[in-house]
Computed example of a mutant assay.
Amino acid sequence: MNISDAAYAVAHDYPGGCESLAPRMGMSANILRNKVNPNNTTHHLTLAEAVRMSQITGDARIAKAIAEELGYTLVETPRVEDCNDAAIVEMMGKAWETHGDVGKEICKTLDDGRVELKEVDRVESRIFTHAQVLFTLAARLRGMAN
């Protein structure tokens, strides 16, 4: 997902949409709709507004889109209370699942003997997701360290 689409989705997927989110951001719903409209050339969401919108909604899609655009993987820092043995076992299961997703996507890509750019994009997306899980696992272990 590109950055503009992510901003649009965060605003419109919030319960109540722009009408509910905009007052919490200190603006009218019409202004917020214009700022997140990818086709609008006169109103733009500032970086501070994008961060505030992400904080209010609890939705990190804008940050994830920025990271992906720059070739990075975004990893959520776990809370200390989430760093325990059960969380590690859960993350290991998720790591096995996402590793399998990478393999399945590669097999689908190679199945017809041709590799298309959209297929490579899907493989990369699965790899990014798998990397996020692995880095989160490492962060949770770090959180358990004395």
Rank of each mutant, 00 (worst) to 15 (best):
S20C: 10
S20E: 15
S20Q: 15
P23W: 00
M25V: 02
G26W: 06
S28R: 01
I31F: 08
I31W: 03
K35T: 00
K35F: 03
H43Q: 13
A48G: 03
E49S: 00
A50Y: 13
A50D: 01
A50V: 09
V51F: 15
S54Q: 15
Q55T: 07
I56D: 14
G58Q: 06
G58F: 02
K64F: 06
I66P: 07
E69K: 13
E69W: 09
G71T: 02
Y72A: 13
V75F: 00
T77D: 09
R79E: 09
V80F: 14
D82Q: 11
A86C: 03
A87Y: 05
I88A: 08
V89A: 13
E90N: 12
M91K: 10
M92W: 12
W96E: 15
E97G: 12
D101V: 11
V102P: 01
V102R: 12
V102A: 05
K104I: 08
C107P: 05
K108N: 11
K108Q: 10
T109Q: 12
T109A: 14
T109G: 13
D111P: 02
D111R: 15
D112F: 09
G113H: 04
V115R: 09
V115K: 10
E116Y: 04
V120N: 10
S125V: 06
F128M: 10
Q132Y: 02
F135V: 06
